[in-house]
Amino acid sequence: MTWIHEEAERIPLDEITVMRLHTIARGEIWDAGRYQEKDADILERYPDGRERVRFRTVPAAETPEHMALLLADWQRCLDEAWVHPLIALAAFNLDFLCIHPFRDGNGRGSRLLWLLQSYRLGYDVGRFVSLERLVEQNQERYYETLEQSSQGWHEGEND
């Protein structure tokens, strides 16, 4: 195991860590590291002024419950080997983004979590791939894929 894996193992994957990573991603903004307080679906705005819901998020009041469940399910999935850890990691990331726990910075926070989880699983992805750069270079595709992947999520009917 490399030093980065050893360091990652020392960081618990809990709500405190999620909030700390969000604070790192957002900096010294007033709500960094705090769950959103108002419901906020993700909207796409068109040049003509129209808008549509790109994807729905979890109601703000339900965010702490959903985050606690997500983190518990992640650990149970690893402990009980429900699926390969990389499949679980992708599912965790989608669930995190659908919960959308923060007012802003959810994508950046999710990618920091992805790196932490990858290192904990023994994958050195951060040494070879910049997730931030990939998203930046493929932003429209990223949002289209997120929208498609989240269809039926709130009803428990996505896979």
Results as ranks from 00 to 15, higher is better:
1 M>L: 05
3 W>I: 11
3 W>M: 09
6 E>W: 13
6 E>L: 15
15 E>Y: 00
20 R>I: 11
24 I>G: 03
25 A>S: 13
27 G>T: 02
28 E>V: 09
28 E>I: 06
31 D>W: 12
35 Y>V: 04
39 D>N: 15
40 A>R: 13
45 R>I: 01
45 R>Q: 04
46 Y>W: 09
48 D>T: 06
53 V>F: 09
55 F>C: 12
56 R>G: 09
56 R>V: 12
57 T>K: 11
58 V>G: 05
59 P>C: 06
60 A>N: 04
65 E>S: 10
67 M>L: 14
67 M>E: 02
67 M>Q: 03
68 A>I: 03
70 L>W: 12
71 L>M: 12
72 A>R: 14
73 D>V: 10
75 Q>H: 15
78 L>F: 11
79 D>N: 12
79 D>Y: 07
81 A>K: 15
84 H>E: 15
85 P>N: 13
87 I>N: 06
89 L>G: 04
89 L>N: 02
89 L>T: 06
90 A>M: 07
90 A>V: 10
94 L>N: 10
95 D>V: 01
97 L>S: 02
98 C>M: 14
99 I>G: 05
108 R>T: 11
109 G>Q: 05
115 L>A: 07
118 S>P: 01
119 Y>S: 01
120 R>K: 15
122 G>W: 11
127 R>D: 08
129 V>G: 00
130 S>A: 00
131 L>F: 11
132 E>W: 01
133 R>I: 07
138 N>E: 03
138 N>Y: 01
141 R>C: 01
143 Y>N: 02
143 Y>H: 06
145 T>C: 08
145 T>G: 05
147 E>L: 03
150 S>E: 08
151 Q>R: 13
153 W>K: 10
153 W>N: 05
156 G>I: 07
157 E>N: 06
159 D>Q: 06
159 D>F: 09
159 D>C: 05
